[in-house]
Design a protein around this nucleic acid. Structure first.
Lengths: 126, 126
DNA sequence: TAACTAATGCGACTGTGTTGCAATAATGCA
DNA sequence: TGCATTATTGCAACACAGTCGCATTAGTTA
């Protein structure tokens, strides 16, 4: 919903996501930006992009939030329920196509299912 | 694997887990201990208990590690693949009975599936 | 071009979790 | 039981992710 001025930083962040298949943490993102952008600024951009349905975020180990572009979301809500994969060797994180079926439970109302698969990616298996 | 002397702190931590159905973060655990126990000590106890297969840990939002007693694990390895539930109102976290089927993927070898379901618990739905 | 205000950078801060080190206490053995 | 050994503990300092207030900078619109 937030106003979005077309700033250099915003474009750089979006480019970084467009140039990769990976999900990125704030830290990784900053590393990949061609110019220095302040940490606070990056977090604020990511927050705004998430509010606007442009990126989604999820937790991977170890305690780090990752962000990736959304395909079918908009500012009225995030609609994905896909799984994520993290390689335990190189720590790379990717979004998977696999949809996650949100299970039903007796005692709880389940609104959301967060699935993180961990293992080895093709590169690290060689 | 680590040596375990039967210390007061160890007993207090185990009691805290035995006295609840919930999973506990280090912070929650410290709050529930009847005496002050140092933060470092608690983290070290949890690490050791996890190594020994007595508790398992997983990440819940927001970026906090939760611990709960294991049922069928021992020091030769953790064997659970159950889901966890976190209430978005009261933040309480519990282990679910539901086993998670680890899916197979083309490009990745999946060793582990972490599933966190989020929604509302019975108490908060009222 | 000027005014408005969103976006930015900076520094300080919070909270989780870790580490080195000296003091303490559980254990095994004489 | 008394003592030596060493695992455990508390403390202080640290690392790192993420947040916040505030003054400055820079898009945007008129």
């Amino acid at each position: 919903m937030g106003v979005h001025r077309k700033t250099r930083n915003l474009e750089l962040v979006l480019d970084a996501f467009r140039n990769t298949q990976e999900a990125l943490s704030a830290h990784l993102l900053i590393e990949r930006l061609p110019v220095d952008v302040n940490r606070s600024t990056v977090y604020r951009l990511l927050d705004r992009l998430e509010d606007d349905g442009v990126v989604h975020s999820f937790l991977a180990s170890e305690n780090i939030r990752f962000y990736a572009l959304c395909k079918e979301c908009n500012q009225s809500g995030h609609v994905h329920s896909h799984a994520h994969f993290q390689c335990t060797s190189c720590s790379q994180v990717v979004c998977l196509e696999q949809e996650v079926a949100v299970p039903t439970l007796n005692q709880y109302r389940v609104d959301e299912a967060q699935v993180l698969l961990k293992g080895q990616c093709a590169t690290c298996m060689r």
